[in-house]
Amino acid sequence: MPELPEVQALAERMTADCAGRALARLDVLSVQVLKTFDPPAHALHGQAVSGVGRYGKFLDLATADGLHLVLHLARAGWIRRRASFPDRPPARRPGHGPLALRLVLDDGSGFEVTEQGSTKRLAAYVVTDPRAVPGVARLGADPLGADFSRAALADLTSGVRKRLKTLLTDQTVLAGIGNAYSDEILHTARLSPYTLASALDEEQLGRLFDAVRQVLSTALERARSVAAADGLKAEKKAGMAVHGRAGERCPRCGDTVRSVNFADSSLQYCPTCQTGGRTLADRRLSRLLK
Rank of each mutant, 00 (worst) to 15 (best):
V113C: 09
E115G: 04
G135A: 06
D38E: 11
E115P: 05
R138M: 12
K57Q: 10
L99D: 07
G140E: 11
L73F: 09
Y125P: 01
K35C: 04
H96F: 11
M14Y: 08
I79S: 09
V136D: 03
L29S: 10
K57G: 06
V70Q: 03
L71K: 05
P39G: 02
V70K: 04
D65L: 00
V126H: 01
S109F: 14
H42T: 11
A132P: 00
H68N: 02
R138K: 13
F58V: 04
A124E: 08
R138G: 06
R21S: 06
G20D: 14
A41P: 05
T36D: 02
A91M: 13
S30E: 13
V113Y: 01
L59P: 02
M14E: 13
L59M: 08
D65A: 01
G135H: 07
V33Y: 08
R25N: 09
G56Y: 02
G135S: 07
D38R: 08
P134T: 12
V113K: 12
D87H: 07
L139F: 01
G95V: 07
L101W: 09
G46W: 05
G135Q: 03
V133W: 02
Q47W: 01
L122Q: 10
F58H: 11
R88W: 07
Q32Y: 06
D107C: 12
Y125C: 03
R93C: 13
A91H: 13
L67N: 03
L44R: 01
R81H: 15
D65Y: 00
L103V: 10
R121F: 13
A48K: 05
L26S: 10
S30P: 06
L34R: 08
R13Q: 15
L67F: 04
D65M: 00
A22F: 02
D17M: 14
H42F: 10
